[in-house]
């Protein structure tokens, strides 16, 4: 680990300074995470009075459970669609804002507003717009001859939560893409313009390749977001339904623990989720270390 050339020397002060954070981390992080690992290899008896060690059986059950595999598939569809929608639209808006420059601050200020909106609220806003009886978008779709009812149609419910989740995430991606574009030396763009390439060509041959590190960073962040931070969107709107059409993994962990009371199964799901986050974090860190400067 990197350190300073010179440091203070003091016998107890550094421990005192680090103690609050260490205490909170151990009590609310290390201990619960250890508990999840421990629970994941136990199974409770029918009345919760006995527990026994079952090794990896909870994990075997999990991956042979069609409901869990279904939830996994839904999560991947949800995460990929949300990430794609939020990143592509943000890249488009950032590219245009970077091009026009005039009124840049005005566009920027408005486009970053959804960052501040809670996922649960974002869900409720779109839930309202698509409400089959009073929602304006559902009404317009109906006039166009398309029958929208996410209360019975699972595919439409999934689309609805994807829209809400992507809407909220556009701001974050926009901020990073715009900052990335503004860090590209103006002279590069001007040289290309003098050589006769138009804005579209410059975007695809210069700007987008130079944004690769930002894009990669955002890709990981967006996947983490859609995997883990979208619980509120689901819970405030579809609650996993209709049926289990929108039951993503974080929703299932909560549901199995607090509603279905399957402690071992939920703990095993927690462990799987932890493994996914740790994997993504490692990828992210390697990227931070090796970030390529062109």
């Amino acid at each position: 680990m990197q350190t300073k050339r010179v440091t203070f020397s003091h016998r107890w002060l550094p421990y005192l300074l680090i103690a609050p954070q260490l205490a909170i981390t151990i009590v609310f992080f290390i201990w619960p995470a250890g508990e999840a690992l421990y629970q994941s290899v136990l199974q409770q008896g029918a009345f919760g009075l006995t527990t026994q060690f079952v090794g990896l059986e909870n994990f075997r059950d999990l991956f042979s459970d069609p409901d869990y595999l279904h939830s996994f598939t839904i999560t991947i569809v949800f995460a990929v669609s949300t990430t794609a929608a939020a990143m592509i639209s943000a890249l488009l808006f950032a590219g245009m804002a970077d091009y026009v420059m005039r009124a840049n601050a005005f566009y920027r200020t408005t486009l970053i507003a959804p960052y501040a909106v809670a996922p649960a609220i974002a869900g409720v806003l779109w839930w309202f717009l698509f409400n089959p009886s009073i929602g304006i978008i559902a009404y317009v779709l109906h006039q166009l001859g398309y029958n929208w009812n996410h209360l019975v149609n699972g595919g439409q419910a999934l689309l609805l939560v994807i829209i809400a989740a992507a809407w909220k995430q556009i701001s974050y991606n926009f901020i990073f893409f715009l900052a990335g574009m503004q860090a590209i030396p103006r002279s590069l763009i001007e040289a290309a313009a003098i050589d006769g390439s138009g804005p579209m060509k410059r975007f695809f041959t210069i700007v987008f390749p130079l944004l690769a590190p930002t894009t990669f960073f955002l890709l990981v962040v967006n996947i983490v977001y859609s995997f883990f931070e979208t619980f509120a969107i689901i819970d405030a709107t579809t609650q996993g339904g209709p049926g289990d059409a929108t039951e993503i993994l974080v929703y299932k962990v909560w549901h199995d623990a607090f509603i279905a009371l399957d402690l071992g199964g939920s703990a095993a799901q927690s462990v799987v989720l932890m493994a996914i986050v740790i994997g993504l974090t490692v990828i992210q860190f390697r990227y931070i270390e090796r970030r390529v400067e062109y």
Binding site: T25, I30, Q39, F228, F258, S270
Partner: peptide
């Protein structure tokens, strides 16, 4: 011990917490 928590959101360890 501190940095291991960097990206693990509360959602994934919800019941034990």
């Amino acid at each position: 011990l501190i940095f291991i928590t960097l990206m693990l959101p509360v959602e994934v360890r919800i019941l034990p917490t």
